[in-house]
């Protein structure tokens, strides 16, 4: 593989709940806890996890849409966390985001032409007189008619709006895009359109994606490598085929088992030997002391018997269990 375009080191994002007059002692939510990741040029790294696992927060803190508590994010050698104000704003066109909610992420009082033209204008990517024709070019690229430019967001369907959101990201001429659940608000038949569009654009424009989603099937389809998050931590990271064929972490295993496959025969087969995960994700305000997954882990006993380690007190480290296959579980240390 080529050079990493983004290198995330020991990134943590902790939210302190305001300790106001009446709210008692401050509680710390570790939304993202000590994450290490590398995204390589031209690849798609998928980031999956259930709601509240911190995957969106991770995406946002990589792009400095919220300032991480600790850690570094190197984009082509520049530490973005250290950049402030104007210096950061000037670099922002290089890395862009596609948002989950196509309704909330477009300013309702701006015309499509202005929404897509804004990054070009801010970063002076084109002479002002050419912005309009550039906007039309990008509209065509994302599969929209050029006369859409003079209309307002509310005139469009969810799928069309998501195309507009993608167009806005592309207008900045980025090489790295974080897509935060870009299809989860869309209907099934529209989802495939957007996935195909994103793949085509990636090939045409040599883009690098960090693709965040909760739907493993979608992530597997689009990404080269995949990271699985649970309670703010990355549990497993390897290429997408391996994660399905040879998942190491017990959480990944149970997650895969829980995802329904649209094939009745296979489902019956799987049901016979499916291990359902008990309980629920613990509150991130009060995570377990040892391994984040220990409260639900079906293989906790096995760890204790084979490794003589108590998962609920000792947290595993995130290490390379097999070449290119990283996981955070005592079973593989």
């Amino acid at each position: 593989m080529t050079e990493p375009i983004v290198k995330v080191k020991n990134l943590s994002m902790h939210f302190g709940q305001a300790s106001g007059f009446f709210s008692g002692p401050q509680r710390l939510v570790k939304a993202v806890d000590n994450v290490n990741l590398e995204v390589f040029e031209g690849e798609t790294l998928g980031l999956v996890g259930e709601s509240g696992c911190g995957k969106s927060t991770l995406g946002r803190s990589i792009l400095q849409l919220c300032k991480p508590t600790t850690g570094t994010v190197q984009y082509r050698g520049t530490d973005l966390v250290k950049l402030e104000g104007k210096a950061l704003r000037k670099m922002r066109n290089r890395f862009q985001m596609i948002y989950q909610d196509p309704y909330a992420s477009l300013n309702p009082r701006m015309k499509i032409a202005d929404i897509i033209g804004e990054p070009m204008y801010i970063h002076q990517l084109h002479p002002r007189s050419e912005i309009r024709s550039e906007v039309e070019k990008i509209l065509k690229m994302v599969g929209l008619a050029r006369d859409f430019a003079d209309r307002y967001p509310h005139e469009f369907s969810g799928g069309q709006r998501q195309r507009i959101g993608i167009a806005r990201a592309l207008a900045a001429q980025p090489d790295f895009i974080v897509a935060d659940e870009p299809i989860s608000a869309l209907d099934v038949s529209i989802q495939a359109q957007i996935i195909n569009l994103m793949r085509n654009l990636q090939q045409q424009l040599k883009l690098t994606y960090l693709f965040i989603a909760h739907d493993l099937a979608v992530v597997r389809h689009i990404s080269d490598r995949m990271a699985v998050m649970y309670l703010g931590k990355v549990m497993e990271l390897t290429d997408s085929n391996t994660i399905y064929e040879d998942p190491l972490h017990p959480y990944t295993q149970s997650l895969l088992a829980a995802i329904p496959i649209p094939d009745p025969e296979k489902e019956r087969e799987r049901e016979a030997n499916r291990v359902l995960l008990d309980g629920e994700v613990p509150s991130p305000e009060n995570p377990p002391e040892g391994c984040a997954f220990c409260t639900r882990c079906p293989r906790k006993r096995e760890v204790f018997e084979t490794k003589k380690i108590d998962c609920s007190t000792k947290a595993p480290t995130f290490a390379e269990a097999k070449p290119g296959h990283w996981t955070a579980c005592h079973l593989y240390t």
């Binding site: 069309q160 099934v188 038949s189 359109q193 195909n196 099937a217 597997r220 995802i259 496959i261 649209p262």
Partner: peptide, 23 residues
């Protein structure tokens, strides 16, 4: 079309999904 447009967890393919175009 719906069934073909679904990415499958159990079979990765490099081919684009067969999307149903339009609305």
């Amino acid at each position: 079309g719906l069934l073909n447009s679904l990415p499958r967890l159990d079979a990765r393919s490099e081919k684009p999904l067969e999307a149903i175009e339009g609305l």
